[in-house]
Amino acid sequence: CAFTHRPCSHPRLEGQEFCIKHILEDKNAPFKQCSYISTKNGKRCPNAAPKPEKKDGVSFCAEH
């Protein structure tokens, strides 16, 4: 993984420079932040999710 703030030993995603944990660092990657919002604390999930086809579409990470 090419994350520069600290060493990361996670494997890169195929065709990308970053792992799934750090892929949002790459603005050109086909990922965006997960659209899930917790009902308990109102916070948005920080994980990466595939970018949807539509610009305003929602997309969820593997956990959600």
Score class of each variant (00 low, 15 high):
Cys8Trp: 00
His10Gln: 11
Phe18Val: 02
Asn41His: 09
Lys21Gly: 09
Arg44Gln: 15
Leu13Arg: 02
His5Cys: 09
Pro50Ile: 06
His5Val: 14
Asp26Lys: 06
Asn47Tyr: 08
Pro11Phe: 02
Ile37Trp: 09
Ile20Thr: 05
Cys34Leu: 01
Pro46Leu: 11
Phe60Ser: 03
Glu14Tyr: 08
Asp56Leu: 08
Phe3Pro: 01
Ser59Phe: 12
Gly15Val: 00
Ile20His: 06
Lys27Phe: 03
Thr4Cys: 10
Ser35Glu: 15
Asp56Val: 10
Gly15Lys: 07
Arg6Gln: 12
Pro50Glu: 15
Pro52His: 08
Cys45Tyr: 01
Ala48Asp: 04
Cys1Ile: 04
Asn41Trp: 06
Phe31Thr: 05
Cys45Thr: 02
Glu25Cys: 05
Asn47Ala: 15
Leu24Pro: 08
Asp56Arg: 12
His64Pro: 02
Phe3Val: 03
Cys1Pro: 00
Leu24Met: 11
Val58Cys: 15
Phe3Cys: 08
Cys45Glu: 06
His64Ala: 01
Ala29Gln: 04
Pro30Leu: 06
Phe60Leu: 14
Ala29Val: 05
Glu25Asn: 05
Tyr36Gln: 11
Tyr36Ile: 08
Pro52Ala: 12
Leu24Thr: 09
Cys8Lys: 01
Gly42Leu: 09
Cys8Val: 00
Ser38Cys: 14
Ala48Ser: 07
Ser59Met: 11
Ser35Lys: 13
Cys19His: 00
Ile23Ala: 11
Pro7Arg: 15
Cys1Phe: 01
Cys45Leu: 02
Gln16Ala: 09
His22Lys: 01
Cys34Phe: 01
Gln16Lys: 08
Arg44Trp: 09
Glu25Met: 11
Asp26Ala: 11
Ser59Tyr: 13
Pro52Ser: 11
Leu24Ala: 08
His10Thr: 10
His5Thr: 15
Asn47Pro: 02
Ala2Phe: 01
Ser59His: 07
His5Phe: 11
Phe18Ile: 01
Cys61Tyr: 01
Cys45Gln: 01
His64Glu: 00
Glu25Gln: 07
Leu24Asp: 08
Arg12Ile: 04
Cys34Asp: 03
Asn41Lys: 15
Lys43Ala: 09
Phe31Ile: 02
Ser38Phe: 14
Asp56Cys: 12
Ala48Met: 07
Glu25Val: 12
Arg6Asp: 12
Asn41Gly: 14
Asn28Trp: 03
Tyr36Phe: 15
Phe18Lys: 02
Ala2Gly: 10
Pro50Thr: 15
Pro50His: 08
His64Arg: 02
Ala49Thr: 15
Asn28Glu: 12
Glu63Ile: 05
Ile23Cys: 07
Gly42Gln: 15
Lys43Asp: 14
Ser35Trp: 07
Tyr36Asp: 07
His10Trp: 09
Gln33Cys: 04
Thr39Glu: 15
Ser38Ile: 03
Ser35Ala: 14
Ser9Glu: 06
Pro30Tyr: 03
Phe3Lys: 04
Gln33Tyr: 12
Glu17Trp: 04
Ile37Asn: 13
Glu17Ala: 05
Arg12Tyr: 00
Asn47Cys: 14
Ser35Cys: 15
Ser35Ile: 06
Ser9His: 09
Ala62Cys: 14
Pro50Gly: 05
Cys19Asn: 00
Glu17Phe: 06
